[in-house]
Design a protein around this nucleic acid. Sequence first.
DNA 1: TTGAAAGCGCTAACAT
DNA 2: ATGTTAGCGCTTTCAA
Lengths: 337, 337
Amino acid sequence: MPRATIDQVAKVAGVGRSTVSRVLNGSQSVSRVAREAVEQAIAELDYVPSRAARSLVMKRANAVGLIIPEELDRFFGDPFFAEVMTGVTSRVLESEYALNVMVASGPSDGFAANKVASFVLNGGVDGVIVVAHHFGDTFIERIVGSVPVVFGGRPIPFDKESETFYVDGENEKGSFAAAQHLIGLGREKIATITGPQNMGAAQDRHKGFSDALAQAGLSPVAVIEGDYSAQRGAAAARRLLEEQVDFDGIFVANDLMAAAVVRTLLEAGVRVPEDVAVVGFDDAAVATEVTPALTTVRQPIRAQGELMADVLLRALAGENPPGVSMLPTSLVVRESA
Amino acid sequence: MPRATIDQVAKVAGVGRSTVSRVLNGSQSVSRVAREAVEQAIAELDYVPSRAARSLVMKRANAVGLIIPEELDRFFGDPFFAEVMTGVTSRVLESEYALNVMVASGPSDGFAANKVASFVLNGGVDGVIVVAHHFGDTFIERIVGSVPVVFGGRPIPFDKESETFYVDGENEKGSFAAAQHLIGLGREKIATITGPQNMGAAQDRHKGFSDALAQAGLSPVAVIEGDYSAQRGAAAARRLLEEQVDFDGIFVANDLMAAAVVRTLLEAGVRVPEDVAVVGFDDAAVATEVTPALTTVRQPIRAQGELMADVLLRALAGENPPGVSMLPTSLVVRESA
DNA sequence: TTGAAAGCGCTAACAT
DNA sequence: ATGTTAGCGCTTTCAA
């Protein structure tokens, strides 16, 4: 806690309170002597201006929020989010803003969600980044309009006019390419494990996949909805096996699940890629850690995090960043397909 | 941003300003009628009290900080930290406090470190958790004494009397047991890859290992300092191989490195555990993902994060939590040793 | 260039 | 039980 106040500094420096304030804020209208006296007094007193007081009068918090509308395990257990956080953090770190992490697990009208919403509404942050938006996360609507919001991945559309942005990978293109690759391999009995269909990006990935199949006159032999977790990935693969679905190719909406699918398949004696070709999405670290290494759709995840932060920071600076930013994806062919 | 002020609420409710404040703060000394009038007015005006104003007068931020004195990649790339964050976040989430994540990468007098220090000093947070403290992180000293500080892992000792705490796993005991296991297996040519020796916990792990060997009349055939990253783990293993060190057992200070060691060994045609028995530390997810599965020292990492948060929250509540909390470790025997 | 004065929106005595 | 008053530490007109 700051001991000294601005008035004490003023007294020690032998100047008025506003002169100290001017020095603090780098005003040009301060004489050299005054400035130096103030700087000396500041050093002498170990003075640090009060954040709260400044926020009160400036009407800004100098902080941005990172909203995580997800269960904790899911979030921190997923390398995708780790990458996003790395990107976001690295950018915010360099800025003058502080970063508030706000977890909104549980129901949209639950304790956590309410805490997040009122934190934003009470001026705790000047803008927010939402990293995983599910349709039905209605608490988000309460904050949209009060501060700029940047989404990671396509969000639900909002009624109220508001400063919202989103940055996303080219999910549709990427999964289209993934499916085409499978088809190009001669696979015709293709299954898929999707991401949570209450998320925009997951829908897009599924659409790209479906379109590619349709274009080839194919339709999926099985569609199972996953939740991006390894656990559900393995479960889905087991189900396919148990139900004796006849498939020779599978597109899995993220690598975490895809790796789990590969392991499950191998354990069941199914050869990858000979019997079943597997394509993932993300090009996460796990893609090369699993054997056979995953063929997958690469996405610049960390860059996506950086871009989200950039967009928000620019919006806060009064610039007009693009409402939508798309980052390219590319197919990486390895061993699994 | 809050539109309405407390005075407007007071006017609409037909009461004085302090009555509104009382309702806000749950005072008992408010009549039913007054309370209801105020609540109605609040709802009507969508009133949310200003965080900044409250902080200013209360002299507290209602926020705690999570300080990460580490490079970003290292931090978010390490599942250990992901677990710690999960634990910390889950507890803070349930509290009335907000969570500020503060990354202090780079030099101790660099931009990031200074930003963190002044954020704490200017009243941005009421207390902090430091998740990876290296000797030489001098910026920490600037904040110790101004707010309660909880360290994850044994910190450097501080001169100034201050409210500092730490919670740690029983590193020494754990690695002692690990080494004993290797010895019990009949291995006598034992090497080790340590953690960064500028961190207390890493020192402790090394000490436990050394003590066990000494007690058995053994001394390590090689000691290589690592940094807990998979990359350095693999590099260390390669070095052992290149230098043709003759070893039949190795204790690696964390699982991320241990898994990399196993992979490197296998690639070089060294059988695990037949030729070399490998023991790791942490019991991270990777311990069971690698083949052969790692024998390792289990540590309740997430619980450690929760405990750190609990200690800080209790300190902030004016309770007197223990200065040192140790969490138990246990040896988990799997396939690698 | 500089200081004096007026708040920012809230809590906390102090009165009543 | 409730209103009045005085600040919390700062930025910002406004004069000088």
